[in-house]
């Protein structure tokens, strides 16, 4: 059945993009401020480093995932678009914005690295560089930038779908189960790794595998995103959609 994705996508992309643009500008301002500050501090004592672009994008998209999934669904239903189309276009919108944000981050990092080439007091790097290249590298090659962008995209995308999962899960649960879920999260975080190691599944192996190559990283988080996506769809496909409380 043909889906009328275009209006839903345009609307949702707009929502995510506007929010992300503001975040981007704030980060850009922060980096600029740090770069300027680094010029005025003494050479041997301190270094200012900024490695937070990726993490900031992840946290921001995670929150946007929580905030927007239900309100976008409501609007799409009011405006005659099915929940399946709303969900699919939401995924596409989030993926697009994650990629754009990641690309913009590479651009920003690249320019900042170029500007601070001679300045040993200022260091800017992002996740990919930290994990796979090393914090000392002053700048990345184009190919490395691409990998970094892919890495950030997959992580941000996954974080957003995780945020949606949170929102949808608490929406579908009744009061009792909401409390159970809220309590069980910290419990699970602590208990699951122990359980897994008891079962002979060594999480360290997984972590090493991810650390071995950026492609593994991207694959892992895309698979995780797909998992969240599937669960999210199951949560909302027969939900009763009413106004926000």
């Amino acid at each position: 059945m043909k889906m009328n994705i275009k209006p839903a996508f345009r609307y949702q992309f707009d929502v995510f993009f506007k929010g992300s643009a503001i975040t981007f500008l704030v980060i850009m301002a922060a980096i600029a401020a740090l770069m300027v500050t680094s010029i005025y501090i003494s050479a041997d004592t301190t270094t200012i480093s900024f490695t937070g672009y990726g993490i900031t994008a992840v946290i921001f998209l995670f929150i946007m995932g929580i905030v927007n999934i239900r309100s976008d669904l409501r609007l799409c239903l009011q405006y005659g678009v099915s929940r399946r189309t709303s969900f699919v276009s939401e995924i596409l919108a989030v993926l697009s914005v994650s990629a754009i944000l990641a690309a913009a981050g590479e651009l920003l990092t690249g320019i900042a690295q170029a500007f601070s080439a001679g300045n040993s007091q200022f260091l800017i790097a992002d996740l990919y560089q930290l994990i796979y290249v090393g914090p000392d590298a002053v700048s990345l090659s184009f190919g490395q930038h691409i990998l970094s962008m892919l890495l950030n995209t997959s992580l941000t995308f996954c974080a957003c779908l995780f945020g949606m999962f949170f929102s949808l899960m608490f929406w579908r649960l009744n009061k009792v189960w909401t409390v159970v879920a809220a309590i069980s999260i910290p419990v699970l975080i602590n208990v699951v790794p122990i359980l897994l190691s008891r079962l002979g599944i060594n999480l360290i192996l997984l972590i090493n595998w991810i650390g071995a190559s950026p492609f593994n990283f991207v694959l892992f988080f895309l698979l995780l995103a797909a998992l969240f996506g599937a669960v999210n769809w199951l949560l909302l496909r027969r939900a009763n959609i009413k106004e926000a409380k």
Partner: peptide, 25 residues
């Protein structure tokens, strides 16, 4: 003749004015 479930062509043809506010804050 087509079920309306997840059917944009059908859902787009009907508009509901109800008491519920379905718009973002």
């Amino acid at each position: 003749g087509e079920p309306i479930e997840n059917n944009d062509a059908a859902l787009g043809k009907a508009f509901l004015v109800a008491e519920q506010n379905m718009f973002p804050d």
